[in-house]
Design a binder for these strands. Structure first.
Length: 441
RNA sequence: GGAGAACUGGCCGAGUGGUUGAAGGCGCGCGCCUGCUAAGCGCGUAUACGGUUUAGAGCCGUAUCGAGGGUUCAAAUCCCUCGUUCUCCGCCA
């Protein structure tokens, strides 16, 4: 969420930022509502002050036994009361509108981010590793959606039988490889000082609001209830509604929601494995084959809570931590800095890590690391205090990054490590996690 | 899923319609006293928003006693709905 005060005082900067993102968020609508709101507040409050003072007097008169005087005063206050009720109604209407507007405003891109319209304007920052030249090796590489089923470790058909399309079943060495990836990744993060968590994969509306998934992206989420099940509450949220989490970012970031942390505790570095659930409602027809875009996938997530002044350095560290996983797995990758037009809703700056995928003959996103600065902190009320440096409490900064998306990593491994005979060599770092298995055949 | 009890400031805890933003205690901060330690004494100790101010401090106002709504001139106190916790019952990996 943006700081209302900042928007009020820097409307041109916000306008430019929204434009750079390709967002049609209406700064002027906000300013108009904000002005109305700020006009009505003193009015209501001074009337309330009058009422409170008069009520006190009535109390005093009653005590003195002056009943008639008290009754007269009551009648007088009655008219004030009506005016207050009227203004109050106006205020809560405007408040709701302001809240909704602020809740649907995307974060402001950091000044360092390249201005651009979309994917084509992203900036490649580095490459690591060299993709294998299968032509030199004399065979045509198979895509993971052919290779996996051929090896009997990936089964799309049975996934459809059990659920529907865009689900995956893994078996035998495939299931083991997936589990190995999870343990390998988490161990790497533990070595780097992250703390491991195990989390619910159903979360409530407050949690999804804090991360920025609600209210704008409800269509991307699986829900436990339909609208007709319960009482509709304010904000269109169904009573008792839970959502399948699209990423552990949502829950990891909300762990300290409505808490005030001690500055000494920061930075907090958290990691968690969870399955992730996405409707992919808007992605019909994209990446329809294989396990690149599915409704349920596994991910090991990293989240950091930092002091504001440390967050951009923390983003570099976190991105490197994500890259380290791919380096240890021997997967060629490149790092992309997303331009303003391609960044996610909550992010001020995002690096994507893309792994080489022979089936796409291209790099494909496997990780996304973002600094959300105080955007999620404001939504989730995440604060810290540091009495030696300032009075009271301040919003901290939140960061999140995949480390890594296990399904896409799985695909990258079997494609990049495939052999001419259709077998797949297990990356060395994973063998200890697979009871020593060297080759999947 | 059913029944009962509870939910007050950092913590404990008083408070069933009228100077209660909230007694008292603990904790914490500042000061005093005491030749160490311990004890004692005094003062202070919520947050958000709005106004005032160049800014801060200060001052004024409003809101906040689980959340939301209602009754009333006036609600921590009365009513309704919801949430959470605890106890008992049911079900269950």
């Amino acid at each position: 969420m943006l700081d209302a005060k900042f928007v009020r005082e820097n409307p041109d900067a916000v306008r430019a930022a929204m434009k750079s993102r390709g967002s049609n968020w209406d700064v002027d609508e906000f300013l108009a509502l904000d002005e109305k709101r700020r006009a009505i507040i003193p009015e209501v409050e001074s009337l309330q002050a009058q009422r409170n003072a008069a009520s006190k007097q009535i109390g005093a008169l009653m005590k003195e036994g002056k009943r008639d005087a008290a009754e007269a005063a009551k009648a007088e206050v009655g008219t004030i009361k009506d005016t207050i009720a009227d203004l109050d109604a106006q205020r809560s209407e405007i408040d709701a509108q302001v809240r909704h507007l602020l809740a649907t405003a995307p974060n402001l891109p950091d000044a360092s981010v390249t201005i651009g319209g979309g994917e084509e304007d992203n900036v490649e920052l580095k490459r690591w590793g060299t993709p294998r030249d299968f032509a030199v090796e004399g065979f045509e590489p198979q895509a993971h959606w052919d290779l996996g089923p051929a090896l009997g470790i990936v089964d799309f058909e049975r996934a459809v039988k059990l659920a529907e399309s865009r689900f995956v079943v893994l078996s035998g060495a495939g299931a083991a490889l997936n589990r190995a990836l999870m343990n390998f990744m988490i161990d790497q993060h533990l070595n780097a000082g992250y703390k491991e968590w195990w989390l619910p994969v159903l979360a409530n509306a407050d949690t999804l609001f804090g991360s920025g998934n609600l209210p704008k992206f409800e269509d991307d989420l699986y829900k436990t209830k339909t609208e007709s099940d319960g009482n509709a509450l304010e904000g269109g949220v169904t009573a008792g509604q839970l959502y399948l989490t699209p990423t552990a970012e949502t829950t990891l970031t909300s762990l300290h929601r409505d808490e005030v942390l001690e500055g000494k505790q920061l930075p907090l570095r958290y990691t968690a494995y969870t399955p992730c659930f996405r409707e992919e409602a808007g992605s019909a027809g994209r990446d329809t084959r294989g396990m690149i875009r599915v409704h349920q996938f596994d991910k090991v997530e990293m989240v950091k809570l930092t002091r504001p002044e440390d967050s951009f350095e923390a983003l570099e560290d976190m991105t490197q931590q994500g890259e380290k996983i791919l380096e240890l797995l021997g997967l060629p990758y490149r790092r992309i800095e997303l331009c303003t037009g391609d960044m996610g809703f909550s992010s001020a700056k995002t690096y994507d890590i893309e792994a080489w995928l022979p089936s796409y003959n291209d790099y494909k996103e496997i990780s996304s690391c973002s600094n959300c600065v105080d955007f999620q902190a404001r939504r989730a009320n995440l604060k810290y205090r540091d009495p030696e440096n300032f009075k009271g409490s301040r919003y901290l900064h939140t960061l999140n990054g995949s480390g890594q998306a296990m399904g896409r990593c799985f695909a990258a491994i079997i494609e990049n490590y495939q052999n001419a005979d259709g077998s797949v060599t297990v990356p060395e770092v994973l063998r200890p996690y697979m009871r020593g298995l060297e080759v999947i055949r």
